[in-house]
C-alpha cells in the first residue's frame, strides 16, 4: 500500500484532484495547516511521498508561502528525501527558484488548475512506479 501525504488547505474543495490516485489504491492522508503538519510530522515523514501546496495558513506578513517553510523544515530537521510533488497556483519565478533550491525537480512542480491524470502520473513517475 503506497501512502502519499497531501498538504493542502483546500482539500475539501478539490478532493477530486487525488481521486484517480485513490482509485488506483493509493492512500492519501491530508493536512490543512502548518499546525496540522507539526502535530502529524512523524506520520508525514513515514509516507512514501508528498504532495505539497505552497500557500497555507497561517498566512503571515513576510512569509506568505508556508509550504516552502514546511519543506525546508522537513529537509533540515528530518533529513526528508522522499519524492515531493508541488501543486500550487503560484508561478512567480523567485518562488519556483526557492523550490528548486530545496530539491524539487522542475517536472514535479505543477500549477493549478491541473488535471488529476497529470497529478497522478507525476506522482507515480516520482515514485518510480510509472
Amino acid at each position: 500500500m503506497t501512502k502519499i501525504a497531501w498538504i493542502e488547505d483546500d482539500y475539501d474543495e478539490i478532493s477530486s484532484l487525488v481521486r484517480l490516485l485513490e482509485l488506483d489504491g493509493y492512500v492519501i492522508p491530508r493536512y490543512r495547516t502548518r499546525q496540522d503538519v507539526e502535530k502529524s510530522i512523524e506520520e508525514i515523514v513515514s509516507c512514501d511521498g508528498l504532495i505539497l501546496d505552497i500557500i497555507l495558513p497561517p498566512i503571515e506578513e513576510g512569509d506568505p508561502h508556508q509550504g516552502i517553510s514546511i519543506l525546508k523544515m522537513l529537509r533540515e530537521k528530518y533529513n526528508y528525501n522522499k519524492p515531493v510533488v508541488v501543486c500550487t497556483v503560484v508561478r512567480a519565478p523567485a518562488v519556483i527558484d526557492k523550490l528548486r533550491k530545496l530539491g524539487v525537480l522542475n517536472g514535479n512542480i505543477l500549477h493549478k488548475p491541473v488535471r488529476p491524470s497529470i497529478l497522478a502520473s507525476t506522482v507515480k513517475k516520482a515514485l518510480g512506479q510509472e
Binding site: E13, I14, S16, R19, L20, P113, V114, P116
Partner: peptide, 13 residues
C-alpha cells in the same frame, strides 16, 4: 482558481 480546479478535477475524474 480553486473552483475551476474543482471543476476540472471532477470532470476529468
Amino acid at each position: 482558481l480553486i473552483f475551476i480546479q474543482s471543476l476540472i478535477g471532477n470532470i476529468e475524474t
